[in-house]
Amino acid sequence: MRLQIDERRCKGCNLCTLVCPYRIFKPGKRANRRGIVVPELDRPERCANCRLRHLYGRTLCGNCQMICPDQAISWKEDEEPVPKKVAIEY
């Protein structure tokens, strides 16, 4: 899973930078062609959802996607997911 920001939707409000427990979103530095400063992603592979979604079969964390007022944050499959069995230990 790869975290991505849809540049056609993002309006650069930086709310995502507030809510990520891993501080993956950093305020951007340069305006894009639409004049919008889209946040930058700092080592997005750390995202909990990227790492664990397939394991648990549901969205994990998802704070950034939920708060993003512009529906700009999503995850993309980058490879065939390998279903893994997890035994949850108590």
Binding site: R9, K11, L15, M66, I67, P69
Partner: peptide, 20 residues
């Protein structure tokens, strides 16, 4: 999309929560 709300407007967030 994108919708007409201003950058950072909370309306979009509440739409997300409602649709979820």
């Amino acid at each position: 999309l994108p919708h007409i709300f201003c950058a950072g407007c909370g309306n979009g967030t509440v739409i997300n929560c409602t649709l979820s």
